[in-house]
């Protein structure tokens, strides 16, 4: 698999404050959809801005398609960064939406004009409206249309759904997936709505306090995250040596969140001992990995995985 983005020991410090990113090593492979998850302030947007050359790394380096992204115009037409706050589109002021779309056509070589028009109808965006009069949701819709229609080999959506209602969000996900199957490209999807977007993600990167906590295929994660409940001594005996993220005690009973593979044999043996096993949704895994309660221990566990 071709690597599109390579980050090596990437560190970013803002004004002598704490490190926003700390020695991050990350490879993004071609034609996959990445889910970038992390709490507020975990460094998601900083990482994305470093990748797109909007910020300069303090130390370490980024390469995009094998080259340095900063000040490389040919490269910048191949990436599209849809930011979390589409408010910046209001700077176009009196320009109509269709003018903005025309401008995007000038920027992105792979722009698809008819697809953009089709999307505008789809998202109920009036292309004759002036950008300064657009509502929050419509601004997001305009930004998303640019992100989809540009078909850039690397497209980044950083919480692009802000202000969109549930129907439009679903429409966005569906259109994205459909267009992705027809025109494969690399997509990085940063989101807080994990459950909503988990169907899109092919690979998941979880950031916490400027470090990568987890970088794994979605399928592998699904095969590894479980809730296990049953009698304490039995559960402990079966899960010896497994990576336990969280334990909840209820009298004689415990419920454990684990992040480790369980073979069918192990699962059957546990079921026969009256232990219940259930897959843990990605959102729960994310919360147990990054939440404050016993965070230090969790991080170590996850790092050991």
């Amino acid at each position: 698999m071709n690597k599109i983005v390579e980050c090596r020991m990437l560190t970013k410090v803002f004004d002598n404050q704490a490190k926003a990113l700390d020695q991050v090593n990350l490879d993004i492979e071609e034609n996959r959809i990445y889910g970038l998850l992390g709490r507020n302030g975990a460094g998601k947007t900083t990482l994305l801005k470093l990748i797109t050359g909007q910020l300069f790394p303090t130390t370490g380096n980024v390469s995009l398609f094998g080259k340095r992204p900063h000040e490389n115009e040919a490269l910048l037409g191949n990436i599209c960064f849809v930011k979390e706050n589409a408010f910046y589109l209001k700077s176009f002021r009196d320009l109509k939406v269709k003018d903005v779309l025309k401008m995007a056509e000038a920027v992105y070589p792979s722009w698809d004009c008819s697809f953009a028009e089709q999307l505008a109808v789809c998202f109920r965006l009036d292309v004759n409206k002036k950008t300064k009069s657009l509502s929050k949701g419509m601004l997001s819709a305009a930004a998303i249309i640019i992100g989809l229609a540009c078909r850039a080999p690397l497209t980044i959506f950083d919480e692009a759904y802000l202000g969109l209602d549930a129907v439009l969000r679903q429409q966005f996900y569906n259109t994205l997936l459909q267009d992705y199957t027809e025109n494969p490209r690399t997509i990085i999807f940063s989101t807080h709505l994990i459950e909503e977007c988990k169907g899109l993600m092919d690979r998941v990167v979880i950031l916490e306090e400027g470090e990568i906590l987890l970088h794994e295929d979605m399928d592998k994660i699904n095969e590894k995250s479980f809730y296990v409940a049953g009698r304490r001594e039995l559960v402990e005996q079966h899960l010896k040596g497994k990576c336990i993220l969280h334990t909840e005690e209820m009298g004689r009973l415990v419920r454990m969140a684990i992040f480790d593979s369980l073979s069918d044999i192990e699962q059957n043996a546990m079921r026969l001992d009256g232990i219940e096993i259930q897959p843990m949704p990605l959102q729960k895994l994310f919360i147990t990995l990054t939440a404050g309660n016993g965070g230090g221990e969790n991080e170590q566990n996850a790092a050991a995985v």
């Binding site: 049953g230 209820m250 009298g251 004689r252 009256g274």
Partner: peptide, 12 residues
Amino acid sequence: LKGNILEDEQVL
């Protein structure tokens, strides 16, 4: 039924 909570015992 599994005997994890006994009679006269408190449940959550």
